[in-house]
Write a protein that binds this DNA or RNA. Sequence first.
DNA 1: GTAAGTAGTAATCAGTTGATTACATCAAGA
DNA 2: TCTTGATGTAATCAACTGATTACTACTTAC
Lengths: 208, 208
Amino acid sequence: MSPEETGRLSAADRREQILTAASVVFGERGYAGGTTDAIAQQAGVSQAYVVRMFGGKEKLFRASAERAADKVIEAFRGAIAEFNANDDVHEKTLKLAIAYTHLVADRGILLTLLHLFSLGHDESFGPLARSCFLSTYTIVREEAGLTPEEASAFFARGMLTTTLLAMRMPDAADDPTAAELMQCTFGETSTDLITLSQGQSPLDDSGR
Amino acid sequence: MSPEETGRLSAADRREQILTAASVVFGERGYAGGTTDAIAQQAGVSQAYVVRMFGGKEKLFRASAERAADKVIEAFRGAIAEFNANDDVHEKTLKLAIAYTHLVADRGILLTLLHLFSLGHDESFGPLARSCFLSTYTIVREEAGLTPEEASAFFARGMLTTTLLAMRMPDAADDPTAAELMQCTFGETSTDLITLSQGQSPLDDSGR
DNA sequence: GTAAGTAGTAATCAGTTGATTACATCAAGA
DNA sequence: TCTTGATGTAATCAACTGATTACTACTTAC
């Protein structure tokens, strides 16, 4: 039988697949709530394999969070590459915000990071959380060339966006108050944001 | 023996004490990570009592989150009561932000809410998360009289503040990048914010 | 063709955790 | 005083979960 038929993958491919699954599960349930078994099911492998490949749940979460941060960085660098020489702050910020918005298509990325940030007290994850956040901040400051005030305002909006998404505010879009808040927050990037964030299948969960 | 000597309390007092403990524990570890036993230890009662008094961990978290939201609402109303007739947006926002900042003294409140917000996908907690957030938004809009844009900007800054606090960015204040970010974000409210958030004893944890 | 390494799993285990039960202790009213 | 209801706990349980072990099956190099 060929590898295609047996469903066997190289370790690198399987690793990527498990990281994708981990992003979904950790994004929805956080570190403590996300089980290695749920990740295994999502990836279509056994729970034992997930644990062994990454050497434990903690290392898997680290890898998952670092990968999420890398994707944010990658997205920002992509937006910066599209800067024109005469772009003002508003245009730069908009391009960054749109890049950020596109990350929402993979809900797991931003939600995994949000969960990482909420673990600041943790001896192991705290330093990782701070360094991940500061990495992205540094790029916006130095590579995008925003001032501290502009960067702070940009991240403020980004965190509100992430939070609204985490609490699935788009699900409450029929509430006029919620609609007003989202309209104002997403602003110029809102056109596709709400549609992007809808219809993403939740995890289904049953015994092992 | 008198009630003072035996350490016995009325159910209402004990309830308040447990809710305070729950705020600390859930704030640090989230819903899934916060154990009823850790809450019981923090409150100085048995684990069985915690569970029985609230009818389960889920109801305890709901009560804890609702209490946190109530304290935010209370703080906002307190700030609004200090508004002067000729206050402009900037003065109003500053008063609200300072009230918000004082909430930080009890780290558990904002962090418990942040954890609640990250549970938007949950059937039970999702609606609660959205309604808690929208309650505070409505107060800022209608009672404080901010426009949607102003309110959105206010909450954006609030979420960034909360996130920085959750990841304990003040612990990294020796990093110049981190210091710059905090300086800009906390702005006029920063004077006491960093000192407020420091030296808060972490949970100590050992077997039951 | 076979030996060796790699992908992958089933079965199982020990620690943790939310919940339950039965019981103890204490204050107040009849 | 003694009975009743409320405060509170120790002991225990069943379910869950991360990790380990022993094993199978496939692929590749020689």
